[in-house]
Every structure is written in structure tokens, then in C-alpha cells.
Simulated assay, not measured.
Amino acid sequence: MSGRPAIRVGLVIVAAGSGTRLGHDHPKAFVELGGRSLLAHALDRLASAADDVVVVGPPTHMEQALAQVERMGPGTRVVPGGATRTGSVAAGMAALGAVDVIAVHDAARPLVDAAALRRAVAAVVDGADASAPALPVTDTLKEVADGEVVIRTVDRASLRAVQTPQVFRAEVLHAAHARGVDATDDLALVEAGGGTVVLVPGSARYLKVTYPDDLLLAEAFLASGDHEERA
């Protein structure tokens, strides 16, 4: 990015999800991986690539969330999450200072490296409204009815599995949220408004921990060593 004005990056880490599907009775962000919480891993890997960091914690576990970020210094803050993911992201955005781009990351993806964030930021700086890491879909996909009856095989050549962090021009994300619609991710809000979304290379290591088997796979990746790419 040489020759360009400095770009201020705001990072919102959403950590308000439950750990029910992991078999835990506490929020997923506090589940341990290699002796440290998923949230701690995400903070350690991504905070250095941002100028302002806000963690959106579970309203019922704010003291625990605060304890997780105290060691990060005054540049990292915690706010309570909303009733939906979209509401939680909005709460994090509102707590950010003046930034040019906003990155939204799920704490449940603990092994995403700073290089992924920098790649997505670069795509936005180069003109996209939004960007995120993604992987080609490798499984055969079937469209079904009633959960069992196959209607057709879906051509996977043009399909991608999108990961986080998702990065946006700040004004684009604020405008997308102002429309008052909920979505499973913020890219969908930008797409609905006609914004341009560019995908950058993702990694299997950027998996989302949702089920116990995901945690086992993340532990295997962690044990294999830190393979962060240097941008």
C-alpha cells in the first residue's frame, strides 16, 4: 500500500455465541483450545493488524470477556452483544473510533492469521466494497426436499465457502446495517444493497469451531505448528 494514505482498520470480534453445540454450558468464545480460549487465540493473531479492536461479548458473561482482553491493553474494549448476530456486530461497530475499514471476525475461528486480514483489507483498499477469505467447495452438493429427496446436483464450480474476517469500507457497512435487516453474515447485507464483494484466498486452518469434531481438528492444526503467511 505504499504511496497511499494510512488506512485505519477497526476490528470487531464477535464472541457472544453459545457453546451448546460444542457440549458446553458456557459461551463458545471461552472454550479452550490448547489451554487457551478461542477468543484469546483470535485476539493474539489478529489484533496486531488493526488500529482499534472491540470484542462483542455475551451479556451474561461480561466479566469473563473483560478478563480475556485486559492483557491486550487500552486499545481493546468489550461491549455486550445483541439478540442476533447482526445486532452484536452493530454494537461492536458503534464502539469503534474513526476508522476507514471495518473487519468483522468470529471468535469461533481461532486460527485465522493476520495475513488473511491484510489480504481482505487490501482488496477493499483496491476498490471493493467488501472482501473475505474463502475456499472452493470440494464436496458434491445436492439440493433436497424434505431433507432426504434429492432434487438435483448443484454445480460447485462457482461456489465458495466464505470465512472471516469479513472486511468492509466503513461507510458501506454502516449503510448496510442502517437498512435494519438481519443476516447470517454481513457480506449478505452488502450484497443486498448492490455492493461489490471480492473474495481472497482462505485456508482450511481458518475453520469455524461449532461441533466437538471441529475442536479436535483445530487442536490438530494447532499442534502442527503456526503456519501464518507473512504478507
Results as ranks from 00 to 15, higher is better:
A161G: 13
A188T: 15
V198K: 10
V31A: 14
R205V: 07
V144H: 01
V56K: 00
L215F: 12
A170G: 09
S224V: 02
L96S: 07
R169L: 02
G34S: 06
G35I: 08
A130G: 11
E228L: 06
L135S: 03
A90T: 10
Y211Q: 15
G82A: 09
A188I: 08
D113K: 02
V181T: 13
L43I: 02
T86Y: 05
S203M: 11
H105N: 10
L38E: 04
D155R: 08
E148I: 14
L189G: 05
L189M: 09
L187R: 11
A91T: 06
I102Q: 05
A204P: 09
P59W: 09
V162P: 07
G19M: 13
R85T: 10
A175N: 05
G180A: 08
L217W: 03
S158H: 14
T76K: 00
G34D: 07
A204M: 13
Y211K: 13
R85G: 11
R179K: 13
D44A: 15
A6M: 08
R230M: 02
V99R: 09
L215R: 06
A145V: 15
Y211E: 15
E229C: 00
R4D: 09
Y206P: 01
A83I: 12
D129M: 04
G202T: 06
V149T: 15
H174S: 11
V9A: 00
G57E: 01
A29K: 04
